[in-house]
């Protein structure tokens, strides 16, 4: 067992486990987009970055890849971390504004403005689908092609793959293609209505009333004065 400090609390962790696993075990919520329990961690979305002080220096590491070490001090929600996470999410939403996963995360992290020109892409290049295909389905029908701005997920030579069994696992695991956010009214705006964990009506009873809108979110509306 390894002993480390996480957000000021001394915690125990099994040797060889990652910071993300430890944090989640102790109920600390670290957002991720390219991580899945059953797949090899990839470290690409950079949302799971945390601050680690190993006695010599403090640096940011990807918690999904960084293995626990004796005596390190980990902080999962510092100002520096939160600022970076928010900006990364902002960059991703600017790329795929219709994704419900991203819109949910935005509400949760309090992101209320996107300062970049909106695009309308479907893929955030998290690489979950191709790891799913190769590692869990034993197929490897899809992969990354190109680099930089030209990177995309395709089958070899963009031809129908002979080894793809149409199992749908790639679609199942994709964080972006699933249900699109229906809360946004004009393209590129932030919905910000999902995931309001505490319904406003419970706190401000009498002034507001709360309805469930089409996507299941709790929407605050001013109570009409009769």
């Amino acid at each position: 067992m390894v002993i480390l400090t996480m957000n000021g609390v001394r915690v125990q962790a099994e040797e060889g486990s990652t910071l993300l696993e430890v944090a989640r075990f102790y109920g600390i919520d670290i957002p991720t987009l390219c991580y899945h329990d059953e797949l090899t961690p990839y470290g690409a979305c950079r949302l799971c970055m945390v601050e680690v002080d190993d006695g010599r220096r403090t640096r940011l590491v990807a918690s999904c890849l960084y293995l626990v070490r004796e005596g390190i001090k980990v902080k999962t929600h510092t100002e520096r971390v939160m600022k970076g996470r928010k900006l990364i999410l902002e960059l991703l939403i600017a790329r795929c504004p219709n994704s419900k996963t991203l819109q949910d995360l935005a509400s949760k992290m309090g992101l209320d403005k996107v300062r970049f020109k909106m695009e309308n892409k479907d893929c955030i290049l998290c690489g979950l689908c191709l790891r799913m295909c190769a590692e869990q389905m034993g197929s490897g029908a899809i992969g990354f092609v190109g680099r930089g701005q030209k990177r995309e997920v395709v089958t070899p030579f963009r031809e129908a793959s002979e080894i793809c069994r149409n199992c749908g696992a790639c679609m199942y695991i994709c964080p972006v293609v699933e249900t699109q956010c229906r809360g946004i009214k004009s393209p590129g705006e932030l919905c910000n209505s999902c995931l309001i964990i505490t319904p406003q009506c419970s706190e401000k009873y009498g002034q507001v009333m709360c309805t469930l809108d089409s996507c299941g979110a709790c929407v605050e509306k001013e109570k009409k004065i009769v």
């Binding site: 950079r46 680099r147 030209k150």
Partner: peptide
Amino acid sequence: QYESCGKCVPCRE
């Protein structure tokens, strides 16, 4: 922008 490998979000986007 063309020589970034495109793996991680901050660099690519």
